[in-house]
Design a protein around this nucleic acid. Structure first.
Lengths: 191, 191
DNA sequence: CACAGTATTTACTGTCAGTAAGATATGGTC
DNA sequence: GACCATATCTTACTGACAGTAAATACTGTG
């Protein structure tokens, strides 16, 4: 039986093999069916992208949960979160590019699709932590999109252009997210 | 005379009118020429995207310079930088989507194209500030991509889904970038 | 005016997303 | 087992578009 999950699995394999520009025909072939079956199961290309974005977001969250799991120091937990994000996206490089890259039409839904599937759960956590800490939780959504956007671009850059280790990069990014810029400039001169 | 700049101007108008999915034919028509002229002047779609990414990055940098210009307090300067980024990208919404969205092939070059044209100049500044402050400048590149990624996604989200004011959002994001997360969680529980 | 060289357009190719219409299988009914 | 109804799959098509090659108009020069 060729159900929706089967097609999505095949799509992931096809993307891994042929890259983000893979055709629907290639995905159908990988699934052992023909194109209209793919359309019947998952809809058009943007729907496929959404479904795979959800899968990727789930993996990111699961990886983060596992990585954080044992740690107790909050800053160390942040390092682990960032590093797991880097490594998970590197592992699913082509899938990441597929869901992030989408077509020029139906932007910005493509870019936001993956982002909000990570950002919305993160926002819930952040809001809850801040409430517990007696802090204003209203920044949670903005901060979540901030963190997700940061992680997405840093990961993209690291995957393709940087050669430093995930550990070192995670430590650097943690330093920014944990302590902020306030320590850095004596005075920000005009650029 | 129909030179390269003329074609790029026309491309911007066509993108503003028809959105990020605009065809090369439409751009050629807007420029008052035919398609092969566009190809002769600017190359293929990815080259066009690169050229327009450079223009957009230049505008972002210029707007930031102007916004920062008068301020003297570093934190206030950061608020101004973020707000000018939000407003500039909102003003050039479709152009932003065009250069950010690219095709699924030649990813991740498309996403990185706009980003690095903003991040590389920013990294130079950051490195110089930190050196002046007696701090380690080696984080500059990673921090620049971090900040640019953060701004890109927050802007995308704000443009399409958020209804709060640019001022308020800029203040929230500044709080994160300036002071970091360290104040927030009493202890990060496992997610 | 003829001609060489260049700029420009027309017209084509190949690819691909998405779909409609036709073919084939499935299963129930007498 | 013959027949029909319904669901499922495939073939074959349409339309749009990126990119290019071949044909055409235009320019100055002897």
């Amino acid at each position: 039986m060729v159900n929706r999950e089967h097609v999505l699995d095949a799509a992931e394999r096809a993307i891994r093999r042929e890259g983000a520009g893979v055709s629907i025909d290639a995905i159908a072939h990988e699934a052992g069916v023909t194109k209209p079956i793919v359309y019947a199961r998952v809809g058009k290309r943007t729907d496929l992208s959404d479904a795979l974005a959800q899968r990727l977001a789930d993996r990111l969250i699961e990886a983060a949960r596992t990585a954080i799991g044992k740690r107790r120091n909050p800053r160390t937990q942040l390092v682990a979160l960032i590093q797991s994000n880097l490594e998970t996206l590197a592992e699913h490089r082509e899938l990441f590019l597929f869901v992030a890259g989408g077509a020029s039409e139906d932007m910005p839904q493509r870019t936001l699709s993956l982002a909000e599937r990570s950002a919305i759960p993160l926002a819930k956590q952040l809001a809850s932590w801040r409430t517990t800490a007696g802090l204003d939780p209203s920044v949670a959504v903005a901060w979540s999109y901030s963190i997700v956007g940061l992680l997405n671009l840093v990961s993209m850059w690291w995957i393709t252009e940087s050669d430093q280790s995930a550990e070192q990069l995670a430590e650097q990014v943690t330093e920014l997210l944990w302590s902020g810029l306030s320590g850095a400039p004596p005075k920000l001169p005009p650029r």
